[in-house]
Amino acid sequence: MSAVMLYLLLGTVLAVAGTVRMLLVRDLLARLIAMNVVGIGSLVILLALGARGGADDATDPVLSALVITGLVITVAFTGFGAVLIRRIEGPRPSDRDGGDRG
């Protein structure tokens, strides 16, 4: 099996595992991390597709552009998600004097 098919398979496995984990876990942070795993998985699939397509083993420029954008967007969402998680699970403004955790 060529390297491309291997990466393709790897990416798919990563994406599926990440999705299942993300959809079923209760804890928010774990879910956020699983989201990143799915992100990486799908980007690997894209790279594999890109590589397969390129004539002289250079990946297809369009797909690599897609991968970079995807990466940036996933990072943005992860940052924003982290802020939200901290707010949700952070101390409530009303009982700032060390009340029980949220």
Binding site: T19, V20, M22, L23, L24, V25, R26, R31
Partner: peptide, 13 residues
């Protein structure tokens, strides 16, 4: 619940 809808989405996928 998140898990509930998550499970359903997994099934759909």
């Amino acid at each position: 619940a998140w898990e509930g809808s998550g499970a359903v989405i997994v099934v759909v996928l």
